[in-house]
């Protein structure tokens, strides 16, 4: 994974400039968000369900179209570009989902190779061929999350934590400069959740990949984030370091006093892990 380091060049910041998102049904996802996420930062976005966390993350790779404003990933504008350009942006931005989003009938390797789709030549696209170099990249990615030995196992045979690691490997296989993670640990039990967060942090440190993570749990946010962004009703209401984000700040974000569920995925919460701790 050496070329990943060499790819890191200056000017790969993510810049939100007055970004608003309105869904077709009229719901406002984001309202006038302006942010700069510098290259290599580990950012955690917190807030209630429906506060716009997912919208924020998905607007970065164009899965949610931005209604107005400007959003740049590195040198590339994301807003209003054509499909081809958008695919270029996406190929440089890996994404991890709450539900892992694996094709569980396929092998781990095939799933990770999804991350190499953007590099396929036209004839390889046609027949679905991946060159040995791509397979080696996939192996490297699996190595980083420590499940190389599962490469040819059907994804459905893996535990939730392992599946999420496959999903991380899939994002890494893109050799991205940005990784987005939408509630990556909400479906996992607390120890596994911590493990996955550690993996993400390690990758962020080792490869210098900008990482933006949505989280429900505040303790995880404080523990791993370089910077915390608090969202409420589509607006950014807090932007600071983990130390600055005390309980007072969180109550502000959540709009009410905190409960044990908001704070952490304590062992008592194991049975409801994956459930939504927000009211």
């Amino acid at each position: 994974m050496t070329e990943q380091g060499s790819r890191a060049t200056a000017g790969r910041d993510i810049v939100f400039d007055d970004v608003s998102v309105v869904y077709p049904n009229g719901t406002k996802g984001l309202i006038d968000v302006s942010l700069t996420i510098p290259e290599g930062q580990f950012v955690v976005v917190v807030g209630l369900s429906g506060a716009g966390k997912s919208t924020l993350i998905r607007s970065i790779n164009g899965l949610v179209p931005v209604t107005s404003g400007s959003l740049r990933v590195g040198e590339t504008e994301v807003v209003g570009v054509g499909r081809r350009r958008l695919r270029q942006v996406r190929s440089d931005v890996g994404m991890i989902f709450q539900g892992f989003n694996l094709v569980t009938r396929r092998s781990v390797m095939k799933n990770v190779l999804t991350g190499r789709l953007h590099a396929q030549s036209w004839w390889a696209k046609l027949i679905g061929y991946h060159p040995p170099a791509d397979i080696e990249i996939a192996f490297d990615a699996l190595e980083r999350v420590g499940i190389v030995e599962k490469a040819w196992v059907r994804a459905s045979h893996l535990s939730g934590g392992q599946q999420q690691r496959v999903a991380i490997a899939r994002a890494l296989a893109q050799q991205p400069s940005v990784v987005l993670a939408d509630e990556p640990v909400a479906s996992l039990d607390p120890p596994t959740a911590n493990q996955v967060m550690r993996d993400l942090q390690r990758i962020n440190r080792e490869l210098g990949i900008t990482t933006v993570v949505n989280l429900h749990f505040l303790d995880l946010a404080r523990r791993y984030a370089d910077r915390i962004i608090g969202m409420r009703a589509g607006r950014v209401v807090f932007d600071g370091t983990g130390e600055q984000a005390d309980d007072k700040v969180f109550e502000d974000i959540y709009g009410r006093s905190l409960t044990a569920e908001d704070v952490s995925a304590t062992p008592t919460q194991v049975s409801v892990a994956g459930g939504d701790p927000a009211p």
Binding site: R87, M95, F100, T114, A171, L180
Partner: peptide
């Protein structure tokens, strides 16, 4: 729809 979103996010045609 999950894997489809994942493929989209990876820049698939």
């Amino acid at each position: 729809p999950g894997p489809i979103e994942a493929a989209d996010a990876a820049g698939a045609t």
